[in-house]
Design a protein around this nucleic acid. Sequence first.
DNA 1: CCTCTATATATCGAGCCTCTATATATTAGC
DNA 2: GCTAATATATAGAGGCTCGATATATAGAGG
Lengths: 120, 120
Amino acid sequence: MPPPSLPSPAVDIQNLSRSCNRILILSTLSSGPHHGYQLAIEIEEKSDGAFRFQHGTLYPILHKLEREGLIRGDWMVERSRRRRKSYRLTEAGDQYLQEQTAGWHEFLDRFAHVVERRKS
Amino acid sequence: MPPPSLPSPAVDIQNLSRSCNRILILSTLSSGPHHGYQLAIEIEEKSDGAFRFQHGTLYPILHKLEREGLIRGDWMVERSRRRRKSYRLTEAGDQYLQEQTAGWHEFLDRFAHVVERRKS
DNA sequence: CCTCTATATATCGAGCCTCTATATATTAGC
DNA sequence: GCTAATATATAGAGGCTCGATATATAGAGG
């Protein structure tokens, strides 16, 4: 079945938080598979503690991304290890990430055009 | 009386939309007084139609900014003109705008640090 | 062996914010 | 006088994040 309709790929001012959270996660996954807990830790470290995913935020986002077919999670069961769900980027997810990144830059340009030039 | 406690001056991933909306408005006001309707039109034009304030979004934000003492609105009643409320930036608002702008750039740096370098 | 902490995932309710829709009033054009 | 554009205001609905809570396992220490 086709993935449920994606949230609009455009980066709007109304959904910046969601866009950023999704980009952070997808972008991190683009460097290789991660499980949820690991994503939160890595993103927090890379941002010097600025971007901290609460658990109640992270997992619902992951579930939604998976429902949309942008990421895929597989349960990893190794001995002497807690069960973990390893997520990796799908091809659709990779494409979506590129669109979102482009949309993000476009947003920044427009925003700067309205804001920055007033400084003088 | 002191203004009600401001939303944290830091630009967090959780309140990007609000931060951006506030920066757009305060920044536009920093170039001179505007009334609400005029703000919406000017911001929409400067952004090539990307940032459109719905009325139900704009006015509550203006009211909140005024309650917080960041802007001040005065009713202008001229003959042969509808009554309008002219908003201008207060000193506190100007300082807040600078903090928010700095916070916004800091946020962008951190975000880029997590996201951008994965491209290669 | 048992407890505590860290790892790991999951979900619910509350709160905040924006959007849509609706309401009111005035001015200008037809 | 009627309609459209100007101008402000607010209530209700929906989406998203957060804080709290729950469950379960592995490793460390007593």
